[in-house]
Amino acid sequence: MQYMLVFSEGQDAFDRRNDPEKAGPYWGAWTAYARAVAEAGIVVSGAGLQPPATATHVTVRDGKRHVQDGPFADAKEHLGGFFVIDVPDLDAALEWAARSPAASYGRVEVRPTLPPPPMPA
């Protein structure tokens, strides 16, 4: 089964990415985790994301397009990255979620993916 691991991080975590004293441990932990996931051969896809300040969001209402700066929610935590992994069951997905650095300082949401839509013949 495929599961998406959604890593949510607070602003302090995004700040650590560029802090000369804290960036090393931050990226070291993520690199080690990402390599371990890759070595396990379970990665379907995944990426880390630039901080929320780089986000732009779009809505279309009544044919009119609205484009705005920033993430769409004033949440305390923001999406920092994700993996889609292929593992036998939820317990295995939770184990990989717990190993992520975000589990210790942010949170990780684990969700099964939908099967792909049927392709036209």
């Binding site: 441990p25 070291g28 932990a29 690199t31 080690a32 985790y33 990402a34 390599r35 371990a36 996931v37 070595e39 184990e95 717990a98 190993r99 650095p101 589990a103 210790s104 300082y105």
Partner: peptide
């Protein structure tokens, strides 16, 4: 060491191994 760090769920152990 890096692989072991990537596989632990304990952040203190992770920091130690790195």
């Amino acid at each position: 060491y890096e692989r072991a760090a990537g596989l632990t769920a304990d952040q203190r152990v992770r920091a130690f191994l790195l």
